[in-house]
């Protein structure tokens, strides 16, 4: 009997010690535990390498505290708006402040060669557009927008300036004198215009190589083409998590058009920059979350205000894609692998 008890006690001590050893108070075995219940975004955050046709070739640090928008001006010089200034980078990466704005800029466009006033700066500041000469001298301030205005993007065509107003949910067309020449995209059941669905203040416009106007309709997860007098010509884009679709409630956040007419889109939520051909068919990925330095664990981490991972994009004349990285305050330059 006593040997029975002794054996039981011995077994209990052994099993108890083993149980203590197996205890996992720090969840060390958590990451590969079958009972792990966390949302796994690994598949969405690591994009298949064969889909990525671009390569980051260089990086330019930006000496600004806040970066808001990126644009390419004459001679492929890069401009970044932020900190109540517009900053210009030379070809060697060194830069200087070209102009000071009245308030915090939210968007930026620069007149290109065929524009009526090449090199002119159009900067969205608050509820007005501030216009500057190529040398940085202030030229005019275009008021006349509504109280609800939230300027999110400016695009220039040969003869017009288009400003995306997320507050009024329209694209406003200005003539070079700063007069409002028209409103595009207002909801109009008579003309079967559904209007722009803008859950958040991300609303981008861009001009195609032939002067046609493209606007993102983020709430509908599509890109729409308009004539200069506001007729909806066509649209493309589908919603979904898959790599060829636009993710979440309101994407893409930014858009740019390559010289050959292909589209480059930048999404938020799952940050990814992708290329679509002129018909809106998915072509390739420029950069996924890992290329942009965003881990899936960082999306929830609110400690450093990093929960909005939105990357503005611009394109230079050689088709290089310039990505404004607000986290590292750098410009990442991507070039096509095939051309390299």
């Amino acid at each position: 009997m006593s040997s029975c008890i002794g054996a039981t006690l011995f077994a209990a001590v052994v099993v108890g010690t083993y149980a203590l050893y197996r205890l996992d108070p720090w969840a060390n075995r958590g990451n590969d535990s079958p009972t792990r219940s966390a949302l796994d975004l690994q598949d969405q955050f690591s994009i298949q390498p064969q889909l990525i046709h671009y390569l980051q070739t260089s990086e330019i640090p930006i000496p600004l505290d806040v970066v808001r928008a990126i644009a390419v001006g004459l001679e492929d010089r890069i401009y970044v708006a932020g900190d109540r200034t517009v900053y210009r980078f030379g070809s060697d990466g060194a830069g200087e402040v070209v102009l000071h704005t009245d308030g915090e800029p939210t968007c930026l466009a620069i007149g290109f060669n065929r524009h009526v006033a090449p090199g002119t700066f159009y900067v969205g500041v608050g509820k007005a557009i501030e216009v500057f000469l190529p040398n940085g001298e202030p030229l005019a301030v275009w008021h006349g927008l509504s109280d609800k205005t939230v300027l999110t993007s400016i695009a220039v065509s040969e003869n017009d300036i288009y400003a995306a107003d997320a507050g009024e949910r329209v694209v406003i067309r200005f003539n070079p004198q700063g007069e409002i020449a028209g409103q595009i995209g207002r909801t109009d059941p008579d003309r079967e215009m559904p209007g722009f669905i803008l859950p958040s203040a991300y609303f981008d416009v861009a001009i195609g190589p032939d002067g046609e106007l493209y606007a993102v309709n983020p709430g509908a997860r599509r890109i729409e083409e308009y004539t200069s007098d506001g007729m909806l010509e066509g649209f493309w884009g589908k919603a979904g998590t898959a790599v060829d679709a636009f993710f979440g409630c309101c994407n893409p956040a930014h858009m740019a058009i390559l010289p050959d007419g292909r589209f480059v889109t930048s999404e938020k939520g799952i940050p990814r920059i992708k290329v679509y051909n002129g018909f809106g068919e998915f072509e390739c990925v420029v950069a996924g979350p890992s290329e942009l330095g965003v881990r899936d664990s960082a999306t929830v981490d609110a400690r450093l205000e990093k929960n909005t991972q939105v990357f503005d994009i611009a394109i230079d004349s050689q088709g290089r894609i310039l990505v404004l990285d607000p986290n590292t305050k750098r410009i990442r330059i991507f070039e096509s692998r095939q051309e390299k």
Binding site: T8, L9, A12, V15, G16
Partner: peptide, 16 residues
């Protein structure tokens, strides 16, 4: 594991 550890303790506690 904690229940197992506790169970072993109970087993010991029956006799000690």
């Amino acid at each position: 594991n904690m229940l197992l550890f506790g169970g072993c303790f109970v087993l010991v506690g029956l006799f000690i």
